[in-house]
Design a binder for these strands. Sequence first.
RNA 1: GCCCUCGUGGCGGAAUCGGUAGACGCAACGGACUUAAAAUCCGUUGAUCGAAAGGUCAUCCCGGUUCGAGUCCGGGCGAGGGCACCA
Length: 865
Amino acid sequence: MQERYEPAAVEAEAQQFWDQRRCFEAKEDSGREKYYCLSMFPYPSGRLHMGHVRNYTIGDVLARFMRMNGRNVLQPMGWDAFGLPAENAAMANGVPPAKWTLDNIAYMKGQLKSLGFALDWSRELATCLPEYYRWNQWLFLRMLEKGIAYQKTGVVNWDPVDKTVLANEQVIDGRGWRTGALVEKREIPMYYLKITAYAEDLLDALGNMPGWPERVRAMQANWIGKSVGVRLGFPYDIAGLGAGVLHAFTTRVDTLMGVTFCAVAAEHPLAAHAARNHPKLAAFIEECKRGPAIESELATQEKKGMPAGLMVRHPISGEAVPVWVGNYVLMSYGDGAVMGVPAHDERDFEFAKKYHLPIKPVIDLLGREYSLQQWAPWYAEHGRCINSGAYDGLEFQTAVDSIAADLSRLNLGEKRTTWRLRDWGISRQRYWGCPIPVIHCGTCGTVPVPDEQLPVVLPVDLVPDGSGNPLLKDAAFLEVPCPRCGAAARRETDTMDTFVDSSWYFLRFACPDNHRAMLDSRVQYWLPVDQYIGGIEHAILHLLYSRFWTRVMNELGSVAFKEPFANLFTQGMVLNEVFFRRPESGRVEYFNPADVEVTLDQGAQRRVTVLRCDGKEVESGGVVTMSKSKNNGVDPQALVDEFGADTARLFTMFAAPPEQTLEWSDEGVQGAYRFIKRLWKAVHDHVTQGAPSTLDKSALTDEQRAIRRQAHHTLAKITDDIGRRRTFNTAIAAAMELLNALAKFSQSSRQDRAVMHEALEIAVLGLSPIIPHVTHALWRALGHTTALIDESWMPVDAGALQTSSIAMVVQVNGKLRGHITVAVGADEGTVRAAALADSHVQKFIGEAAIRKVIIVPGKLVNVVV
RNA sequence: GCCCUCGUGGCGGAAUCGGUAGACGCAACGGACUUAAAAUCCGUUGAUCGAAAGGUCAUCCCGGUUCGAGUCCGGGCGAGGGCACCA
C-alpha cells in the first residue's frame, strides 16, 4: 500500500472498477425488495454548482447504504433540458439552443461521473429529445379527449417593441428586460390543465403522507387554499346593462349586515361598463392592469380604489350599496368581486378609512369596545352578531347557516367551496420547449394531431433573436395539411411549460428504452419512488404538478398508484459570503470569493478583505445563497481537481445537517481533506505491520474491550444516523471520534492488532457511502479480495457493547453535583444509596430533609430537598 | 401582506423521547519535528471568581408548566426562505 494518499489515482481506479463491472445498472428482480432513490434531475445550465453536489451526494449516500443493506437499488439520472436559459444563451452566442443544451449535458455528465455517484447511466434521458417529449404530446392528447386539457384566454406580459411575450423574470420594474419598453398585458388563447378538479383529492391525501416533511405538506395545503363559504349575489338594474347580479364569495357571511360597499377587480365586466363614459375611471383601470400580477407585490402595495358610480342592492336589506373598483381585488380568485365589510376585515378597514366609507360593526366579542379609529386584530375574530336585525345574538356557525338559508330562499346565494389553486396554464410562446400537438385549420378549427403523426418534432437548428418565437418564421414547421380536411393549415407554435416535462420523468426511468409506449409493466416494480431528494424551492409547483400528473395517469390506467413519491427529503441551500464594492457612480460590483484574500489583523481583532488582483479592500455583505447575480458561487470542479471527489462529498455532508443551509468554508474543506489523510495513514500504518491474527473475544484487556465497544457503538450510530435519522454530519463526527481514539490506542500485542483491524474495518465500511473511492482502496488494503461495493453492511456485535458498570450523574435540585459508578442492573435502592453516599452530594444536601429522589435508570439521579 | 423555517462559544454545528449544554470540525494560542517553510503530531480554548479544590453565570428576550427546559406552552424581538411564465 502506498504511503501517500493521492485522490486522483484512487478515484480513477475506483470509478473504473465500478464502470467496468456495470455495478450500478439496475435489473428488475421480483425476488428482491427494490429501493428507488431519486434526486431531482438538473437543468443543464453548463456546469454543476454546489447545490447539485449536495443534492446528489445525499442521494448517493442513501443509495449506497441501501444497496449494502440488501436492497435492489435504482438510482437514475436525466436532464431537464428545455427552458429559457438555452434561448438566452442562443441569443448571446448565436448557437442553437439544442447544441448549447447537448454540449452542456456532455460536460456535466463528465462532472457527475468524476464525483463517483452510483448512477445507472443506461437509463439516462433528456426531456428535449423527441423520444421523451413525444409522450408529453401523447398524454396531452388524452387529456384533451377527457376534457382535462382545455383552451381559454390567459393574460401574458407583452413587450410592444420586441413584439414578444415575456416571462415574469424578464419583466424588471414593469419594463421589458431587453428593450426597456413598458410591458403591456395581453389576453391570448392558451391551454390549461384542470388541476382544480383534483384539488380536493390533492389536499386530502396530504394528511396521509407521513414520508413527507410537515412544512412541505403545509405549503401545499396552503397553496391549494380551500375556503368554505358562501357565494352570494348583489342584484342590480343598471342603465345600459339591464338587470343582473354581482357575485362575490365570502367566508364571513355572518358579517353580511355590515357590508358598506362592494369592490370589483379592474378586469371585472362591471368595471369595464362603468368606465365607458368615465375617462378617469378608465385611466385608473388601466393603471391597475399595469400593476403587479405577483401576489406578494399585490399584498404589500398601497390599496387604491375609485367609485364606479354604480349601485347594487344588499341581498337581505335591499339597501343601495356602492360599487368600487379596487386594485387589491383579484379577478382570478372567486368571482373577481368582494363584499366590503370594513368593520371586520383589515383590508376593507384600511380601504374604508382612506376613502371615508362607513364602518358598521356587526360582530361583538365578549363586550369588547370597538373603535372606529384604529384596527385591532380581534375585529376579525368570530363572535356574536349585533346590529344585524333578525340575526342578532347568533354565533358564527348558526349565523352562517341562517343567512345562507335565507340567501338560498331568495335565490341570491349558496354555500360554496372555493380554491386558491387555479388551473395550470401550460402554453408558452417560446421556441425551446415541447410543441403542443394541435393544428389550426381555417375550416375545421383547432384539430389535435393524430397519434400516428406523433411526435411533433421541434426543429433543432433555429436561433432565437429576441423578436418572438422563431417557429413563427419557420415554414417547414408551420405549414401542414389539416389532418381532418387536408386543406392547408397552420401548426400551433406554442410549446409546453417545462414543468410538464418534469411531472413524469420519474416514471419514465423505469422504461426509458420503450419506443412503443409511454410506460410499461416495469413501472409496477420500481414505482413509487422510495426516496425523492431535492431543494425546498420545489416544495410547491413541481411536486404538486407531479402528484396531479400521476393522478391523471392513474385514471387512464397507466399506473396503479396516485402518489409518486413515498418519501421526500428537502435539502437546504448552499450559502457563501458575498463581497462587493459600491462605486460612487454606477452599479454595485460583486467579486467572487475565490478572488478575495481574507486576512486577520493583529490578534484576530479585525478581518481584512482585499481583492487579490489590485490589493484594495472590498466590503463583505454577509453569508447568502450562492447565486450568479451575487457572484459568490464556488465551482465544484476546482474543488474536485484540487482535493478529489471524496473531500467534496465529505465536506458537504459534514458541515451541516442535510436539511439545513450549508455555509461554504475553505477551511472546512481543508479539515475534510485532513481527515481522509488521517484515515489513510491509520490504515497504512496498520497494514504495513503485516497481517493481524484473529480476534479472541474471550481474552480481552479492559483497554481492548473499550476500543471494541467504541467501534461497535460507532457502527450502531452510523447505521442509525444514515438509515433512520438522515443526519450524515453526526455519523461522520462519530467516525472521527473513533479515529481519534484509535490514534491514542497503543498497540503491543497481537490481540491489540486484531482489535485495531476490526475497528478500522468498521470505520472504512461505515464511511463508504459518503467517501466511496478512498474506502474502496482501503478495504483492499485491509486484506479483502472482494470489492467493498458488493459487501453487506456489517452487523453490530451486541456483545461488544456490553459493560459491567455504568456511570451516572447525581443532581441536587436539578443541578449537577456528583458522578457515581454503579453495576449494570443495580436496583433503585443501591443507586439511591450510592448517590446519597457521594461526599460532594452530601455537602449540598447538608441538613435539609430529602423530599424526593428521582432515578432515571442508567442516566441520572436527582435528589430534591 | 400571507405562509414556512430557524435563533446555542470567535465560527459551522452536537445534545435523537424533558435528564451531564457545547460532541465533531474550523479558527486561535502554546509546544514538538525542521536550517526554514509547508505538511504532520501533542496540548489548551464559553464567561467569570479562585493558588487550587471548586463555585457562580450562560442556549435571542419576557413569562409559564416541571423534581429537572436549548428541547414543551404563551407573548415579544431578530434572521432566512417561498408566494403561479426561472428551474
